[in-house]
Simulated assay, not measured.
Amino acid sequence: MSRQETLRVARWCRWMLAFVFIYHGLVPKLLFLSPVEVQMVEASGLGLNAQVISPLAGAAEVLLGLLILSGWFGRWPVVAAGFGLVGLLGYVALFAPMLLIEAFNPVSTNLPVLLLCLLICHLERTADS
Score class of each variant (00 low, 15 high):
94 L>I: 11
56 L>P: 00
27 V>M: 12
37 E>R: 11
99 L>C: 02
30 L>C: 03
51 Q>V: 13
54 S>V: 02
73 F>Q: 10
11 R>E: 06
129 S>G: 15
110 N>M: 10
95 F>L: 08
106 P>M: 11
120 I>C: 10
50 A>T: 05
118 L>P: 01
10 A>W: 03
52 V>I: 12
64 L>A: 06
76 W>M: 13
79 V>Q: 09
97 P>W: 01
110 N>A: 14
18 A>Y: 10
96 A>G: 02
103 A>M: 07
81 A>K: 04
80 A>I: 15
81 A>G: 06
39 Q>A: 13
113 V>I: 14
14 R>K: 15
6 T>G: 02
118 L>R: 05
15 W>E: 06
53 I>S: 05
122 H>A: 15
52 V>Q: 02
33 L>K: 11
35 P>K: 11
5 E>D: 11
126 T>S: 08
51 Q>T: 15
61 E>S: 04
115 L>A: 15
83 F>H: 09
50 A>F: 01
19 F>V: 10
128 D>E: 10
108 S>G: 13
77 P>L: 07
116 L>K: 07
50 A>V: 04
96 A>R: 04
31 L>N: 08
11 R>S: 05
106 P>C: 08
44 S>A: 15
3 R>D: 07
23 Y>E: 13
96 A>D: 01
53 I>H: 02
81 A>T: 11
47 G>V: 12
107 V>H: 12
118 L>S: 12
108 S>Q: 15
42 E>M: 15
78 V>D: 12
116 L>D: 01
64 L>Y: 06
31 L>S: 04
48 L>K: 04
122 H>R: 14
47 G>S: 13
120 I>A: 14
73 F>H: 08
83 F>Y: 13
116 L>H: 10
83 F>P: 06
68 I>A: 09
78 V>Y: 10
59 A>V: 04
102 E>K: 06
62 V>M: 01
120 I>D: 06
104 F>D: 14
115 L>W: 10
83 F>W: 14
25 G>Q: 00
106 P>R: 09
116 L>Q: 01
14 R>V: 03
19 F>M: 03
25 G>S: 02
73 F>W: 15
68 I>G: 09
18 A>H: 09
62 V>H: 00
34 S>R: 05
75 R>V: 07
74 G>A: 04
67 L>W: 08
109 T>Q: 15
29 K>F: 02
45 G>M: 10
69 L>N: 04
2 S>C: 03
91 Y>I: 00
77 P>E: 04
10 A>D: 07
63 L>N: 04
47 G>W: 12
90 G>T: 03
6 T>V: 09
26 L>Q: 07
17 L>Y: 03
83 F>M: 14
1 M>S: 13
126 T>W: 05
61 E>W: 02
129 S>L: 05
117 C>K: 12
120 I>S: 11
108 S>W: 14
20 V>S: 09
100 L>C: 04
43 A>E: 08
9 V>W: 13
78 V>G: 02
119 L>R: 08
128 D>M: 03
39 Q>Y: 13
10 A>I: 05
106 P>L: 14
30 L>V: 02
5 E>K: 14
39 Q>E: 12
43 A>M: 10
67 L>D: 04
106 P>D: 10
44 S>G: 14
26 L>W: 14
50 A>N: 04
9 V>G: 02
45 G>K: 06
6 T>P: 01
100 L>H: 07
47 G>K: 09
128 D>V: 08
11 R>M: 07
86 V>P: 10
104 F>I: 12
79 V>K: 07
90 G>R: 07
127 A>W: 09
115 L>M: 10
110 N>R: 13
